[in-house]
Amino acid sequence: MITFHDVYKTYLMGETRVEALQGVTFELPERRLAVIMGPSGSGKSTLLHLAGCLDTPTHGRVNYNGTDLGALSSRGRADFRAQSVGFVFQKFNLIPNLTALRNVEIPLLLQNKPAAEARKRALDALDAVELRDRMHHRPSKLSGGEQQRVAIARALINDPKLILADEPTGNLDTRTGQRILLLLKGLVEKGKAVVVVTHNPEIAASANTLVLLRDGKVESFSTSHGKEGLV
């Protein structure tokens, strides 16, 4: 379970202070599809970065199953990203000079897993997204949808409890986007907590939890069970 408690995040862009998040407080349940929506610049991606330990809050606390993520060291944050969370990005973010298989293997290799084990689990992950036949292709030889499925396979390789997706269908056509959505919903059914930042109303309609951000603040919070998620 992820809890945001009075979280502020301030960036300095040159001499300008940008208040990306201003006192955000809510919690996201496990094994649910949570959707964060809001206009551009409302702080959606920042929220996702804080949840995934890619960044630390300027003020407040972000807890994951009781761990204060902001208090972790640089190494602790790296280990959290390696073991507890999987990222899916709008631009896929695959390493261009590696094959699909090697892209999926990378998180395991960074954790010193044996090459044979990494290979087997990467093939299983590619099977899960039905891309085993494209495993030796580099990203430039894959379609957008295929690249995103490789990215999902990579996010799943460590079997994390939490999947964070930032506009996962933003660069895809409608039909491919629907396929990705099905994949994400399937992950929830397998017991993962999936947090999606999106403008896509179709994904929002599928959400168990919907958070609407505006100007760095929570404008509305709703779950399929009401507003009990607000703390």
Binding site: G52, L54, R75, R81, F87, I106, P107
Partner: peptide, 16 residues
């Protein structure tokens, strides 16, 4: 730079 960001996002430590 972007590749470094990707590696860090999937768990690479600074030392790695």
């Amino acid at each position: 730079t972007r590749e470094i960001g990707i590696l860090k996002a999937v768990g690479a430590r600074d030392g790695q």
